[in-house]
């Protein structure tokens, strides 16, 4: 199960809306081993595409340096699908390489309501998990 504050949930959805029709992407970091997503880190989609996302390679290196220095994990890795459902595509599954992370997908295909779903992706196997949004402290 993924448990996150409403503030982080809303920040992810707002980022997805802002970058629509391109895919938005980012992570939420948390203390290593805690499984608590606390620090929202929106990233640029270097592909600037409605059907693909990729962290810029220099940004990726800087991000992982920062996580290491802060003793943090990427607890959530999120991105949006802008015309299809919030479910991992074959491309998403092929690239997924953080077995400890919650892969969050947001679909912005409906302008009035956002689909927000979370998955584990381990060795190519996708498992959806419940999402619990708790009031921000």
């Amino acid at each position: 199960m993924l448990r996150l504050d409403s503030e982080i949930h809303d920040a992810i959805v707002a980022h997805a809306r802002r970058d629509h029709p391109d895919e938005a992407c980012g992570i939420v970091a948390g203390p290593a081993g805690s499984d608590r997503p606390l620090r929202f880190v929106p990233m640029l989609n270097a592909a600037r595409s409605p059907t693909f996302y990729e962290f810029d390679s220099a940004d990726l290196l800087a991000l992982y340096r920062e996580l290491e220095a802060n003793e943090e994990d990427p607890v959530i890795v999120y991105h949006s699908h802008t015309a299809t459902e919030a479910y991992p595509s074959r491309t998403d599954i092929a690239y997924a390489s953080e077995p400890g992370a919650h892969y969050v997908l947001v679909s912005t295909r409906d302008p009035d309501s956002a689909e927000f779903r979370s998955f584990r992706i381990v060795d190519g196997a996708v498992t959806e998990e419940p999402v619990e949004v708790v009031p921000a402290p």
Binding site: E23, C25, I27, M43, A47, S49, P50, T51, F52, Y53, E54, F55, S57, L60, V77, H79, H81, T82, A83, T84, P88, S89, T91, D92, A94, Y95, A96, S97, E98
Partner: peptide
């Protein structure tokens, strides 16, 4: 690991 993916 590259962090990438997408609906296509």
């Amino acid at each position: 690991p590259a962090v990438a993916g997408g609906s296509r």
